[in-house]
């Protein structure tokens, strides 16, 4: 019976249907299915299919992102139950992500977040216009492995450096890797401000994040 449920969970992710994904998650809890099994054999399996379809060119960004949203909706139900049992799901790493102070650009950062989630990272998307100390506080709160900073403007790009300085001040810099991105950002800029990684696009961000995690 669980097998059928896992299949439906995977399908909800493949279909990009957050409502259905969430309903199935609740149903699995109600019927006593192991939440870790539900995540791994249901939703993650679905996300793998989405990733394959994206790689083969059949799926596009909206499919990928809605798949991620479906996954997220299910995790919102299942993770509290996992934690209550003193367990957690296996992730490649924990990433705190946001667009830096003064910059209200959402889409590039959201794409990077979706791509990282789809590839097995735990992503905390703080949103846009995020203060430097907020990044540091949330990195500490979530024991982040990576802080990922987005900026779309040459003017706001400068705040990526501020965040790194705040991480140093907070005593987190040796535990947390920093990756930067955004249209004006270059490898040279990343080097200049002492960031650990830079990528040109969302798919590249996954490669960089994996490298930073030593994977």
């Amino acid at each position: 019976m669980s097998e059928e449920l896992f299949k439906q969970m995977a399908q909800a992710v493949i279909d990009g249907d957050p409502d259905q994904a969430q309903a199935l998650a609740q149903q699995s809890l109600d019927t006593g299915v192991d939440p870790l099994e539900a995540i791994n054999r249901g939703y993650t399996a679905g996300m793998d299919v989405v990733g394959e379809l994206y790689s083969s060119g059949e799926y596009f960004l909206p499919d990928l992102i809605l798949g991620g949203e479906a996954m997220k909706a299910a995790l919102a139900v299942l993770e509290p139950a996992l934690k209550a049992g003193g367990r957690q799901r296996k992730v490649l790493g924990t990433i705190v992500l946001g667009t830096v102070k003064g910059d209200i650009h959402e889409i590039g950062k959201a794409l990077v977040g979706s791509m990282l989630s789809a590839n097995g990272f735990q992503v905390y998307d703080l949103g846009i216009d995020i203060e430097a100390d907020e990044f540091a506080a949330r990195a500490r709160e979530h024991s982040a492995d990576i802080v990922a900073l987005s900026a779309l403007l040459t003017t706001t790009m400068l705040h990526q450096r501020d965040v790194i300085e705040h991480l140093v001040e907070a005593g987190l810099r040796d535990r947390v890797k920093v990756m930067v991105g955004g249209s004006p950002v270059t490898q040279a800029w990343a080097d200049q401000i002492g960031a650990d990684g830079y990528a040109e696009d969302a798919a590249g961000a996954v490669t960089v994040a994996k490298r930073l995690m030593g994977i």
Binding site: G57, P62, D63, G68, E106, I107, A110, S114, I128
Partner: peptide, 23 residues
Amino acid sequence: HEGNFLKNKHTRRHFRQEDYIPT
């Protein structure tokens, strides 16, 4: 004002037809 239409179902419903997607 959230700014992300990529995760809206309306996008998924329409994007394949609205533009020609080249190889």
